[in-house]
Design a protein around this nucleic acid. Structure first.
Lengths: 121, 121
DNA sequence: AGATCATATGATCATATGTTCATATGATCA
DNA sequence: TGATCATATGAACATATGATCATATGATCT
């Protein structure tokens, strides 16, 4: 077995070539993993998590969310924008007021799955 | 009703006092929400997600992970440290080699729940 | 013991991210 | 129409974060 057969794609050549090759074939697509990381990134901020936990209860306007979380309207608005771009929330206008609500049932499922991990010993 | 009864905890006074007060009582504890955001923050990075997706297949040593992901040993080691501190992975030593594996079944459940959201229309 | 291998870690640096401030937009009401 | 209210947004700034580089640690083998 000469050097050409060794896996040398990186500075740390694999120790277990068989394992590496086997696992490589079963990994999810890079794109999916990237998108998944992006999704969790959205959940990975206290402000956004708190906003979502408010919206789990009821649709809420920007102003009320700001009040509930004791933050500025601007900060909340910026984060709502991110949540909306990620399609986790949606909104509707009623006169001057804009109400935000969850876009999706998955959101709560993901949230709850995380909560289980947090609360269990 | 005088001003003292109005909710003025922030620069954006609530429009719907009843809703705000009602929701306030039902929100999860601040600590839990903070921890939850911290948890999702761990998942919110491509490298860590890719590492986890490797470990879903089999326990793997640092070197092999680096090879699989085409990254340096150091970068992987740093991220494994973060995953371990978050108790998402564990490790065992076998001679010079250190094998990492999932610490918890929840990890895959959270991962999969996110994947559902990604893959569904 | 010395050399080597696998991994860990501290410092550094560039980039990403969240909040603030000022201001813009868009709708309602007098 | 002008004033006001609710929300959105751009710029600026401070902090957080991830990769790299150099080096340390810890185990194995001769």
């Amino acid at each position: 077995m000469n050097k050409k057969n060794a896996i040398e794609r990186c500075d740390s050549p694999a120790i277990h070539e068989n394992t590496v090759e086997s696992v490589r074939g079963r990994l999810p697509a890079e794109d999916a993993l990237f998108d998944l990381a992006e999704l969790f990134k959205i959940f990975g901020d206290s402000t956004r998590i708190r906003i979502l936990s408010v919206l789990f209860e009821t649709e809420t306007c920007v102003c009320d969310i700001a009040c509930l979380l004791n933050m500025t309207q601007s900060a909340i608005s910026h984060q709502l924008r991110i949540l909306k771009q990620a399609k986790l929330v949606q909104n509707r206008r009623d006169g001057k007021t804009i109400y935000y609500s969850l876009a999706d049932d998955h959101v709560k499922l993901i949230f709850d799955q995380g909560l289980i991990h947090i609360t269990e010993p």
